[in-house]
């Protein structure tokens, strides 16, 4: 290849990269802008904070927002303590054996299991076998289990990134292993753990399939009364509103989608901020 054709090739690959970049940026902006423009006219105080009337054709979506927030909280409560502790075990305590490598591989693969499969598991195990019924509890546990591999993976990556020299410094001062982990390794890894966890929660927040079979309700004109009650949730509400309810004004569907997008983006922005601050 002579110099001129090399230069040409260089220009072409450069150009292709730039085009791909703008394609991605514009699609993302386009999607968000489209949802925003379609939905913003439906957003109002009453829409956000009132109970649905007439299967959601009138009134507001308050129970779906509350349901989604409770669900996210439940998912957090299930996945974070379990996930962080098992990641600590895997990285800090377990011997580097074949079995541990296998478990790590399994955890990574678990993150790739389709969410509807988790939903069916939740239906079989939490709803029926353990008898938790169609409830916020069953759905939270299901989403929690689904989010677990994300939390474990994020925590492991954050823990592995803690320099060995800091662990040694703590040990050399007479810290025990658990003291080293609690006072030292975990605080150092915390921004990474939190950022990864928030991304996992953001995904859980937008899931429809796992809650579909474990407790979400089509329409409930009241807030969930506890973890044993059924609930409404934004993603499922959007699906129902868009496809199952004749006469549903389109801007109300888009407004609900915009609300969900806003909540998820809040979580992702928090994750991004933490990652930035960690740097």
């Amino acid at each position: 290849m002579n110099f001129n054709s090399a230069l040409k090739w260089e220009k072409m690959t450069n150009g292709a990269a730039v085009v791909a970049f703008w394609f991605v940026v514009l699609t993302t902006i386009g999607v968000i802008a489209y949802i925003f423009m379609q939905g913003i006219s439906g957003i109002s105080w009453n829409f956000i904070f009132e109970m649905p009337v007439n299967r959601g054709i009138e009134g507001g979506i308050w129970p779906t927002i509350v349901g989604t927030l409770w669900l996210t909280l439940g998912t957090f409560a299930v996945s974070v303590p379990l996930g962080v502790m098992s990641a600590v075990y895997l990285t800090e305590y377990a011997e580097k054996s074949f079995a541990i490598r296998l478990i790590n591989l399994a955890v990574v693969n678990l993150a790739g299991v389709p969410s509807v499969v988790f939903g069916l598991f939740g239906l079989a195990f939490f709803v029926l076998f353990l008898g938790f019924g169609s409830s916020l509890l069953s759905a939270s546990l299901t989403l929690g289990i689904m989010t677990l591999p994300v939390v474990v993976t994020a925590t492991r990556e954050a823990l592995v990134a803690v320099p060995q020299s800091y662990r040694e410094a703590a040990y050399a001062l007479g810290a025990t292993r658990s003291q080293t982990i609690v006072t030292h390794v975990l605080p150092y890894a915390r921004p990474g753990i939190v950022a990864g966890t928030l991304l996992g929660l953001g995904r859980a927040m937008g899931e429809t399939a796992p809650i579909l079979v474990t407790g979400v309700a089509v329409a409930l004109p009241r807030l969930p009364s506890g973890f044993n009650s059924r609930f409404m949730a934004l993603p499922y509400h959007i699906y129902i509103a868009a496809t199952q309810i004749p006469g549903m004004p389109k801007e109300r569907v888009w407004a609900a989608a915009l609300t969900l997008l806003f909540l998820v983006m809040c979580l992702n922005a928090a994750a991004g901020l933490l990652r930035e601050r960690n740097r």
Partner: peptide
């Protein structure tokens, strides 16, 4: 207990 009696300083400074 031993490491409380026998301290160690490392090659690269490793302050927390």
């Amino acid at each position: 207990k031993l490491r409380q009696n026998i301290g160690m300083v490392f090659q690269k400074p490793n302050p927390f």
